[in-house]
């Protein structure tokens, strides 16, 4: 695996629909990296639906992100140990009800502290939905990762999430250069300009001025979402990842990296219900190997190739 040169790398795992296996993927990629000698900290930011600790077989911790937001505790003090000495966990909130109202400054404070943690990788489980909180946190990561299952409802929610992320990205990129109102006006009056989708919006914006075009080209050239297909029941479903990658490029105009897939496996939910960490219980299973490959691909920034289907 490649050496991380400066500081740690933050990976955020999100993706619209609930139940696609984000927590399972996060927990097990983390476990894999830790087993390869990397220092890993997992943060369960699925505020209101945190269960990463269950997946890892850790009993419910007493401290959580609530303490960070409400008591201004430092993030480093909230880390609890997992089975592996290389891995720590900050669990999400299970009691605070006002979780939707975390201010942007609070989130920035969280990310500032995340960056100071002494570790190699920080994996943030964002939970489902396309809430502004989730979108913001997703964009602040070094690698944005989506976990998808081969179901039309999951794909639908994923597109919604992606569009929200991309729009927010445009807002941040253009907003900081004084084009916030231009963007909002354009979108509000999109029917007048004949804009039907986000790609046409970007095409329209690019024509505005050289400055806007340069900003967009620069910001979008580095924009990339990493895609994981989970719960594959048939080999033909592997290609859905390639199809989604194609649609993102050709219809939305941004890059995705398809880093791998994980087969559907009954043992997984049995492990989860028994609160046994899957990767440690079945280290040589096919799922475990697929998880390992995904983790390596994410580290290296590689993607899988289409094989004969």
């Amino acid at each position: 695996m490649a050496r991380v040169k400066k500081g740690c790398e933050i990976w955020a795992i999100g993706g619209g629909k609930g139940g696609t296996g984000k927590s399972f993927v996060t927990g097990n990629i983390g476990t894999y990296l830790a087993s390869r000698g990397k220092r890993v900290i997992l943060i369960d930011a699925d505020i209101g639906g945190a269960n990463l600790h269950t997946i890892l077989g850790v009993s419910r911790p007493r401290t959580s992100l609530t303490d960070f937001f409400e008591r201004k505790a430092s993030l480093a003090d909230l880390i609890v140990c997992c089975d592996s000495s290389n891995m720590g966990l900050v669990t999400g909130d299970l009691h605070s009800i006002d979780s939707g109202n975390i201010r942007y400054t609070q989130k920035l404070r969280l990310f500032r502290q995340i960056r100071t943690l002494e570790t190699d990788y920080i994996l943030i489980d964002l939970g489902s939905g396309s809430h502004a909180n989730t979108v913001d946190a997703f964009l602040l990561a070094d690698k944005m990762i989506i976990v998808l299952v081969p179901e039309i409802t999951a794909i639908e929610n994923m597109y919604h999430f992606m569009k929200n992320v991309l729009f927010k990205k445009l807002k941040i990129s253009l907003g900081s250069r004084g084009f916030k109102e231009f963007l909002q006006d354009t979108w509000r009056n999109r029917t007048t300009y004949g804009i039907k989708n986000i790609k046409e919006l970007i095409d329209y914006l690019r024509k505005h001025s050289t400055e806007v075009r340069e900003v967009l080209d620069r910001e979008l050239s580095g924009f990339r979402i990493y895609l994981i297909m989970n719960q594959i029941r048939h080999t033909s479903e592997i290609s859905i990842g390639f199809s989604v990658r194609s649609v993102c490029m050709k219809y939305f105009g941004f890059k995705t990296h398809y880093v791998g897939y994980i087969e559907y496996e009954d043992l997984v939910w049995r492990c989860v219900n028994e609160q046994r960490p899957y990767l440690q219980s079945y280290p040589s299973s096919r799922c475990a190997k697929e998880i390992g490959r995904i983790a390596e691909n994410l580290v290296e920034g590689r993607q899988i190739k289409m094989t004969y289907s």
């Binding site: 179901e151 039309i152 794909i155 039907k196 989708n197 859905i240 199809s243």
Partner: peptide, 11 residues
């Protein structure tokens, strides 16, 4: 297909 259907009306 399930990949195209959810965005079919946008394009």
């Amino acid at each position: 297909s399930i990949v195209i259907h959810p965005i079919a009306n946008e394009f």
